[in-house]
């Protein structure tokens, strides 16, 4: 028996939308601690890892130790787009039904003594669970900046080049690209905004390095403005994947690991 409820269906929709940028389907792993979703994109360049802890939900109940539900994200997203923003989202699953394996999605809107209800059932699919996990890493470099700023730069660069070069230095980040026709060059500096801390840029770069990333991945990560207006990027070097994370309340959030491009 699984049942979880959320008063902000928009946030869950944003999470699923972000995942569906790279992944068609993935296992939703429900445990007593909450929901975890993780998957590699088909090119094996980006790994998406989402945690929605039990306390992140308004109500959460999972009787099983671990429940693995294979979900088609595109279909789930279609369903979630049908939910009004002012509704209560409820996900449920009954595992005593041998015939049909489906995740029920319900939206309820209070109408005084009565409730308007819309119900959907998402047929589940079998997906082999990942047999590997992310190793423990000691991040030596970290940068925190407004998600909107990263989005703006990645969007601009995407107009010129499929590849962006990030040069992390102790006191600046240079983001650039070049094509046959043009070049673009952005400099981002540490900055404390005393009136609005969310505008600040903080960097702690112990070992400066340079890495190239595929622009459209960075652009899609930066679409998580609704999840957190701040993005944290953790790094070691050009050979180790970079981590982009967008945290939410109660230890929840979305994080991505992305493999860089090596210069010959």
């Amino acid at each position: 028996m699984l049942e979880c409820k959320l008063q902000e269906p928009k946030v869950f929709r944003s999470v699923v939308e972000a995942m569906s940028e790279h992944i068609k389907e993935c296992n939703f792993e429900f445990t007593r601690e909450g929901l975890k979703m993780q998957a590699l994109d088909s090119s094996h360049i980006a790994f998406t890892f989402v945690t929605l802890s039990a306390t992140w939900w308004n109500e959460y109940r999972c009787d099983d130790e671990a429940l693995l539900l294979g979900v088609n994200l595109e279909t789930l997203l279609k369903i979630l787009k049908c939910g009004p923003d002012n509704s209560l989202l409820a996900l449920s699953y009954e595992n005593d039904d041998d015939e049909v394996s489906e995740l029920k999605v319900k939206f309820e809107v209070d109408r005084g003594e009565k409730k308007d209800v819309a119900e959907f059932a998402l047929k589940l699919t079998h997906i082999d669970p990942m047999e590997e996990e992310v190793p423990e890493l000691t991040w030596t470099n970290e940068l925190e900046m407004p998600t909107q700023e990263l989005f703006r730069i990645a969007r601009d660069i995407s107009l010129f080049s499929e590849i962006m070069v990030l040069e992390f230095d102790k006191d600046k980040l240079r983001i650039s690209c070049s094509s046959k026709e043009s070049t673009a060059d952005y400099l981002v500096h540490p900055f404390e905004d005393s009136t609005n801390a969310s505008n600040s840029v903080r960097m702690n770069i112990e070992a400066p390095f340079k890495v190239s990333l595929t622009t459209h991945y960075v652009l899609s990560f930066a679409k998580n403005k609704n999840i957190n207006e701040r993005v944290v990027i953790k790094m070691i070097d050009a050979e180790t994947p970079l981590m982009f994370s967008f945290s939410m309340k109660e230890g929840s959030g979305i994080c991505y690991y992305i493999a860089g491009r090596l210069t010959d």
Binding site: H44, F47, P135
Partner: peptide
């Protein structure tokens, strides 16, 4: 030119 790395060798067995 740069060469895209993948995450194939990044993960460790559970």
């Amino acid at each position: 030119m740069s060469k895209q790395q993948t995450l194939a060798s990044f993960f460790k067995p559970k």
